[in-house]
Each structure stands twice: as C-alpha cells, then as structure tokens.
C-alpha cells in the first residue's frame, strides 16, 4: 500500500541515503557527506518519497542523472552479478575444500613413521617412573 502523498517514511529515506554516493566527495554516501550537493540530494530523496515514488524509482532517477557510480553497490544484474556471486562462490568453495582436506587428513594413517619413536619415548618414561618410585635417585643432585 502506497503511503498517502506528502507523508514519507524517514527510515526508508535514510536507508536510500546510504545507498547513494555523493558524486563529488571521495568515498562518502550522501548520508555521510555534509556538502551542499549531498544536502540537496537528501532533500530530493524525501520529496520523491513524499510523492509516492518507490525506492527503485528513486535510485533509477539518480543513476540517470549521475551515472552508475552514484550507486553505493553495483546492481545485482548483468555483468555486475559477478561482483556479488564470485566472492560468495569462492568462500563456499574454500569451506568445501577445507572440509575435504580435513576428511583426507582424517583418513590418513596417524603417522606410522613416528610410532616406533613414540614407543621408545614411552619406554624411557615408564622406566624413569619406575626409578622414581624406587626412591628417585636422580633428583637430589
């Protein structure tokens, strides 16, 4: 249901502010920037919302005026879909790869090469424990 003309949702306006970059200040949205142009654009957003314009129409209006760089994030369509899909796909692939790597590590035998040496260590430990039990001859030096 469209809001009655003349009334607009300030929260919606602010969320649109954050989706639009200020064309003349490096890396700032019109919500952040304090230059005159940003103030006018904020004003324009509110006027358009008050006239019952939808969010997409507002964004389209500014894109037409200032070019696609005015959008704070590329649209999820066309070639720009790549910007969104690639990182998500890569992170998913990395997690899957990590899972497979872990599973492969789990299947591997737990280092048979080291086993005789571990056994030797244990043997020496138990023998020294025994010695300790008999009066710890080595500990008073």
């Amino acid at each position: 249901m469209p809001p009655p003309p003349g009334v607009f949702d300030e929260a919606e306006a602010q969320s649109i502010d954050r989706m639009l970059m200020c064309p003349i200040c490096p890396g700032e949205s019109i919500d952040q920037s304090q230059v005159e142009l940003a103030k006018q654009m904020r004003q324009r957003v509110r006027e358009m919302l008050a006239q019952g314009t939808t969010r997409q129409q507002v964004l389209d209006f500014f894109v037409e005026r200032y070019g696609p760089t005015v959008l704070a994030a590329p649209p999820k369509s066309g070639l720009n879909l790549l910007a969104w899909v690639l990182p998500v796909a890569l992170v998913a692939a990395a997690l899957a790869g990590g899972f497979l790597a872990l599973r492969a590590m789990r299947r591997g035998n737990p280092e048979p090469v080291l086993d005789p040496y571990l056994a030797a260590v244990d043997a020496r430990l138990s023998s020294s424990n025994l010695a300790e039990g008999q009066g710890r001859p080595d500990n008073n030096g």
Binding site: T69, L71, L79, N80, L86, P87, L90, V91
Partner: peptide, 27 residues
C-alpha cells in the same frame, strides 16, 4: 577476500568491463 574483491572490483570493472561503478558499504 570479500573485502579485497570489493576494493578491487571497481578497478577491474573499469579495466575489463569499461564500466565505472562503486562498491561501498551496502555491498
């Protein structure tokens, strides 16, 4: 990686897609 990708994508888009775009906070 996502962060790196976001910083570099505008450059890549300009170089290979010939299109100027912005990647900022909403992304």
């Amino acid at each position: 990686f996502v962060t790196l990708w976001g910083t570099l994508y505008p450059l890549l888009s300009r170089l290979f897609g010939g299109q100027e775009i912005t990647v900022a906070r909403p992304f």
